[in-house]
Every structure is written in C-alpha cells, then in structure tokens.
Design a protein around this nucleic acid. Structure first.
Lengths: 178, 178
DNA sequence: AGGCGATTATATCGCCGCGATACATCGATT
DNA sequence: AATCGATGTATCGCGGCGATATAATCGCCT
C-alpha cells in the first residue's frame, strides 16, 4: 500500500514528490524501494480522489533558485482515509510488502490494532515456516543440495522472525497491562 | 524471471500448466508464489516465442478420466534459451526476486557462474546491510521506536544472509580447488 | 444413491508497481 | 569552461498479482 505510505508521510508535513520518495526510501530502506514510476502516478491518483491537493502557487521569492516543484498536502478527506487505513488490521496488512510500512507508522496506530497486526503477521510467518519444515523433513524424493540450502536458510530466517514478533507482541501486552 | 523457472522445469520433463505451478510452489515455497495470472500468459508468450510447444493431441485412453490439459515441452530453441539464462550472471540474477530461482537451478549452472552469482548477491546484501547500519548508528534525528526495531531486525537478517552466502561461496571454492 | 466440498485444470481482467528513459536545472569539482 | 552528480517532474511498456469464471472429477459422508 503505497497510498498508505504517502498519506502517512504527508500527514507529518506537506511535501513534494521527490522528497516523499527520499523519506520513504529512508524509512523503509531495507524493504521496498518505490520507484518514480509508481510515485507520480500514485500522487495523481490520490489527487483525483480528492485525498491530497497541491499547495497554493507559492512562487515566493524566498524559495526561488529551485526548480518548479509541486508541494502536496492532505485534505480533510485524506486525513480521514489515513485514519481508516491506520485502524485496519486485515490480512493485507500482514503480507511481506505492506507489513513493514504498517510497522513504520505504528506509533500512530491504535494499540489494539497494533497487536492484531503483529499476531496476524506471526501466523503468516509461522505458516511459511511450517511449509518449509515439512519440505525439509519429508523423506522420499531427495532434494537438490542447493534447494535444500535455500529452504534451510528460509527456515532459519522465518524462525528468527517469529521470535522477533513474539518479543514485539510481549512488549505491546506489557505496555497495555501497566 | 518466471520465464527462466518455467523453462527450467520443462527441461526436466514435459508438463502442463497446473503441474508447473505446483512444482514451482514446491520448489520455491518460501519466496515467490507465482499466480495463475502470471502462469498462463507466460506460457502463451513462450509458445509464441517458439521456446515451447504443446505436445501432440495425446488423447490416449490411458490418461482419460482427466480433464483436458495442455502438456508443453521445450523446443531446441527453448533448450538453447535456458542454457543462455543459466550462463548469465548479470545484476538481475542477484535481486531478491530471482536469486532464489537461480539458486534452485544451481546444480545445472556452470561452476564459475555459480560463484559470480553468489558474490554478486553478497555484495547486494552487504550494501543493504550498510545502509541499515548507517541509519541505525546515525546520531541526530531520533527515530521512531518501531522503525528502529524494523531496521534492527533487517540488519540482523542481512548479517545472517551474508554469513550464509559466505559459507556457500567457501564451499564452491573448496569444490573448485579439489 | 446422492450430494457436496476439495482438488484438478485452463483462462482472463484490471490494477499496480517497476525499470528505463527523457528532460531540465542547479551546485560542486576539475 | 566543462562535466558530473544531485534535484526535480514525468511517461511508457511490461510483467506479475489477486480476483474471478468455468468445469470436471474425486473422495467422503450420509
């Protein structure tokens, strides 16, 4: 959900495209890279949907020397939409692509939604882990050495992620109970 | 490179679409899922390119009881194309999406190409790791707790992957030298 | 015998994100 | 003076995905 990420960043402050991309890259550097081929079309989509608007002409003498840029800001509808997305804890918030984005905006996410997202993510990773385990312990049909190595690495990394999620969940619960 | 994966599987034996997808899911379960929305268009593309053909009508009484299926097999051009892809060690073989696929076909990949792919992948992961390290140790602008947690997890997992790749590379080298 | 869900099987649709590319201006290095 | 790298907006085609349609067969329960 690129849309979610852009709304989230604009929620902090009005920004232009290039800066949004940089901030996003900085925020999620490890995971998704979001190219310009997604950025500008998405901005236009959001604009058409009335969730963002270009800020006034603003060709103030101050900021001159710089090239033409379009600074966007959230509309009230945009803020509302962002709040809705923040409150969502559906399956699509768990998948590899969007989980990182959601985590990055966790400090503005309601506490109960946070826990539900983390638990959903955990179940998702656990399922993958079980699939890998099954494939690795399966007798019959010997597997290719490299494929086995791939699965071994996948298994270890999913195990680590589950442990990590457990810590995050425990932390959320202790915070809730205090 | 879906194309690569399909050619690779058909290189083992002729197969129909549904089975290809299952084999692929089994081979790469952890990583990519390849939906039918990619499968059938890709098969048609390969067919149009003359890399695969449908096997003869083959409505033998034996296999009846089953629904109509289209069994594909490689053409000589298809085999050639697969060999070319196997010999490739360019940047696109290192990225998250295709590295797993290439590894799954490593036993049929020339030894020197294997090492170059592994080293390329290592450099790629190392770069990501450095980015994460830099972001985490950077003083100034305190980061959100959750974002930091995300980056911490990313850092550890890239570190593990680098170690894993080092083992694979060492193994390749020792095999080469013996 | 009958029904029903799961599996096997092919196929399409629209959307979304990516990589490549183009273009233009600015500051810094050489 | 020239060139390079960053800043900045934008488009194009392609490839992959999720949802969906369709349909036959298999195994299971009653």
């Amino acid at each position: 959900m690129f849309e979610f990420a852009l709304l989230g960043l604009l929620h902090e402050a009005p920004m232009h495209g290039y800066e949004l991309r940089k901030r996003l890259h900085d925020l999620l550097g490890a995971f998704r890279a979001f190219s310009y081929g997604s950025l500008y079309p998405t901005l236009r989509r959001l604009q058409r949907a009335g969730l963002i608007v270009e800020e006034g002409p603003e060709e103030s003498a101050l900021s001159w020397g710089r090239r033409a840029r379009k600074v966007y800001k959230l509309t009230p509808e945009g803020k509302e939409r962002f709040a809705e997305l923040l409150a969502d804890a559906g399956p699509q918030t768990w998948d590899d692509d969007s989980f990182g984005v959601h985590l990055a905006f966790f400090s503005r996410t309601p506490a109960d939604v946070r826990i539900r997202i983390l638990e959903g993510r955990r179940r998702c990773v656990e399922e993958r882990r079980e699939g890998l385990r099954e494939r690795l312990t399966r007798t019959g049909e010997q597997i290719d050495r490299y494929t086995r190595e791939l699965h071994r690495q996948g298994l270890e990394s999913t195990e680590r992620e589950v442990r990590w999620l457990n810590e995050l969940i425990a932390h959320e619960q202790s915070e809730r109970d205090e």
